[in-house]
């Protein structure tokens, strides 16, 4: 049981076997990340290393800094301290090995682009400066759309898609990026049941392909069904590890404090003992 302000050394060890692994094998490691908005700390010395090839949920109460954690780790917002390593290399040099799926509200859906255009954007990094996408790239984008069940909407303007469909397009774009680490900011926010299922299937497929996936997640009820690992945040690092050992009433109490009704806690912990 780690104290939640603990940061550091245990990251460098495999949690289960205590066997040392080299930093090159750690897909995504954050050290002492501190972020403040208007001189108020939102994240306080968070250290974390994502388990390779696992599907991890980032959970915590509102204002716990879950989205901030991803953005700061990627260097998209300024931070006070801390750094991020991707397979042992600084994040700035490894952006291409990471695919980030922002919250749906982060972009202008009225933009003149079709679903396939958006997916193609995921390939721009591979296409490189000045060059236009070729037919091969279009084919690949189409395949990615297919894998999220959106092939029939390829030429639809993105604003005319439903919220769930938009989220799937975002996911298809992340697939097109073909990265090793996927960071997703609330992909399940405001989507329909069918989309939720489709997203889960895609996430599982990614993990089966050996990718490391981190997802900001809100719904505690589904954590156990969807994920193998969790990272609990509450401004600080509360706990991380496999769902069975970490998704406990005690840890949830620590992260959510009084915000989680005791009946809710009971329900979740019962599930944990089952």
């Amino acid at each position: 049981m780690h104290d939640r302000s603990s940061s550091g050394l245990h990251l460098l060890h495999d949690t289960d076997t205590s066997k040392t692994v080299s930093p090159q094998d750690l897909p995504f490691t954050v050290q002492g990340m501190t972020v403040a908005y208007h001189h108020k700390p939102v994240l306080w010395g968070v250290s974390y290393s994502a388990p390779k090839g696992c599907l991890t949920a980032i959970i915590g109460p509102n204002g716990a800094g879950k989205s901030t954690f991803l953005k700061a780790a990627l260097g998209l917002i300024p931070k006070l301290s801390g750094d991020t390593k991707v397979f042992g290399a600084p994040i700035e040099k490894s952006l291409k090995r990471i695919a980030y799926v922002p919250q749906r509200s982060a972009v202008d859906w009225d933009f003149p682009a079709t679903a396939i255009d958006v997916v193609l954007m995921g390939l721009y990094g591979q296409i490189g400066w000045f060059r236009w996408p070729s037919r091969k790239h279009r084919q690949k984008a189409m395949d990615c759309l297919k894998s999220v069940g959106m092939q029939d909407f390829a030429n639809r303007q993105i604003g005319q898609l439903s919220g769930g469909q938009q989220q799937r397009v975002f996911l298809a774009r992340a697939l097109a990026q073909d990265s090793e680490v996927y960071l997703m900011d609330e992909p399940f926010a405001g989507v329909d049941a069918a989309t939720e299922k489709a997203i889960v299937a895609v996430l599982r497929q990614l993990v089966a392909d050996g990718k490391t996936v981190l997802v900001v997640h809100h719904d505690l009820e589904t954590v156990r069904d969807y994920y193998s690992h969790i990272l609990l945040l509450n401004g600080q690092h509360v706990a991380d590890g496999p769902v069975e050992t970490t998704f406990t009433a005690e840890n949830l109490q620590k992260a959510y404090g009084g915000r989680l009704a005791s009946t809710q806690l009971d329900g979740l912990s019962e599930a944990s003992s089952a």
């Binding site: 990627l74 998209l76 952006l95 291409k96 990471i98 695919a99 980030y100 922002p102 982060a106 972009v107 202008d108 933009f111 682009a113 255009d117 958006v118 954007m121 995921g122 721009y124 990094g125 774009r173 990026q177």
Partner: peptide, 14 residues
């Protein structure tokens, strides 16, 4: 196009 639509992705792709 990409930097107008999604500056974050644009930055992360270089």
């Amino acid at each position: 196009k990409i930097s107008s639509f999604d500056p974050l992705l644009s930055a992360s792709l270089g």
